[in-house]
Simulated scan of single mutants.
Amino acid sequence: MSHPQDPQQPGWGGPQQPYGQPPFQPQPPKKRGVGKIVGFGCLGLVGVIVLFGVIGALLSNGSDSKDSSGSNDVEPTASTPKKDKPAAANTAENNEKKAENQVVVFKVWGTAPAGALGPLDITYGSDSDNRKGTFANGKFEATLPLNKDALYYNVTAQLQGSGDINCSVTVEGHSKKGHASGGYNLCTAQLSSGLLGGWD
């Protein structure tokens, strides 16, 4: 006579499930968050970029400090650019240029022997200040303080029977020249104040 099998007793297939209950199902594996993976990937990429930037900055600072310290003992050559002049020298040059721009320069040069009326006749100045000059050793040079209100500056030299002369007037780096030769001819040079403040 056969006995019914106890559900708790091992049988042909191991322990039997109670009749009418579904068999046990294993839990599905946990899903990884795709957002977390993408986030960590982007963060890693940014970190690599920052790391390269820091390394690049360190390398460029290292080369700059080496150049500025003068540790490379390279003698200056024709192809090596000269270093700037000290600030004191630049200031002195600027002051000289400013001083030159604050005066008007008048010149006459050439050959001008004295004639029956005497030596070369020179006048120079502005529309409000006229002066007489003396020609000696083949040249004449004079300066006047620059008056910004002057309408013009000029120099005139008249020969006394013979000779060959040149003349010039210079204001703020602008120059005008003239020439005369023979007889009682005039050498004249004039710079006029322009409407916009320049000289021509």
Score class of each variant (00 low, 15 high):
Val38Tyr: 01
Val38Cys: 02
Val104Asn: 01
Trp12Gly: 13
Lys107Ser: 12
Trp12Ala: 14
Lys139Phe: 09
Ala116Gly: 15
Lys139Asn: 14
Phe106Gly: 13
Ala99Trp: 00
Val103Tyr: 00
Asn101Met: 13
Gln9Glu: 07
Asp84Ser: 12
Gly33Pro: 01
Val48Cys: 14
Leu195His: 08
Thr134Tyr: 08
Asn90Trp: 02
Ala114Arg: 03
Asp164Cys: 06
Gly14Gln: 05
Gly62Met: 06
Thr123Met: 05
Leu196Glu: 12
Ala157Asp: 04
Gly197Cys: 07
Pro15Thr: 08
Gln9Phe: 01
Phe140Glu: 00
Ser68Tyr: 05
Gly173Arg: 03
Asn61Thr: 01
Ile55Lys: 00
Trp12Pro: 11
Ser126Thr: 05
Gly178Arg: 15
Thr170Ala: 11
Tyr153Ile: 05
Ala136Thr: 10
Phe106Asp: 06
Gly41Glu: 01
Ser162Glu: 10
Tyr153Gly: 08
Lys148Gly: 15
Trp199Asp: 03
Ala150Ile: 07
Gly47Tyr: 03
Lys85Leu: 15
Gln160Ala: 12
Asn147Cys: 02
Met1Thr: 09
Ala87Thr: 08
Ile165Asp: 03
Thr77Glu: 07
Asn137Tyr: 08
Asn154Phe: 07
Asp200Ile: 11
Ala136Asp: 02
Pro23Arg: 11
Glu75Gln: 14
Asn95Glu: 15
Ser69Asp: 12
Val171Phe: 01
Ala189Lys: 04
Ser71Cys: 03
Phe140Arg: 13
Val169Asn: 06
Leu159Ser: 12
Ser79Val: 04
Ser65Tyr: 05
Leu120Val: 06
Thr91Tyr: 04
Val48Glu: 03
Ser193Asn: 12
Pro76Ala: 15
Trp109Ala: 15
Ala89Glu: 13
Gln158Asn: 10
Gly70Thr: 12
Gly44Cys: 11
Gly182His: 02
Ser63Thr: 04
Gly47Phe: 11
Val46Phe: 07
Pro29Ile: 00
Ser193Glu: 06
Gly44Lys: 09
Gln158Asp: 09
Asp67Phe: 11
Ala180Pro: 10
Glu172Cys: 05
Lys132Trp: 00
Tyr19Asn: 04
Lys66Asn: 05
Asn147Phe: 09
Asp64Met: 14
Ser126Trp: 02
Asp84Lys: 03
Lys176Met: 12
Gly115Ala: 10
Asn95His: 09
Thr188Val: 09
Gly70Ser: 11
Ala189Glu: 07
Gly183Gln: 13
Ile55Thr: 02
Ser68Gln: 13
Gly41Lys: 01
Ile55Tyr: 01
Glu172Lys: 11
Asp200Thr: 08
Ala157Cys: 09
Asp84Trp: 02
Ala89Arg: 10
Phe52Trp: 03
Ser192Trp: 01
Gly138Asn: 10
Ser2Pro: 10
Leu45Val: 13
Ser128Tyr: 01
Tyr184Met: 07
His174Ser: 07
Ile49Lys: 05
Thr123Cys: 05
Asp73Ile: 09
Ala87Cys: 02
Gly39Thr: 07
Lys98Ile: 13
Gly62Gln: 08
Ser65Gln: 03
Pro119Val: 11
Gln5His: 11
Leu51Gln: 01
Tyr184Gly: 11
Glu141Gly: 14
Gly11Lys: 11
Ala142Lys: 13
Gly125Asp: 00
Leu120Gln: 08
Gln9Met: 06
Lys83Met: 14
Ser181Pro: 02
Lys83Ala: 15
Ser192Asn: 05
Leu117Asp: 15
Gln25Ile: 00
Gly198Pro: 08
Ser126Met: 13
Leu144His: 07
Ser192Lys: 12
Glu75Tyr: 14
Ala112Leu: 08
Pro4Trp: 02
Ala112Asn: 08
Gln17Asp: 07
Tyr153Lys: 10
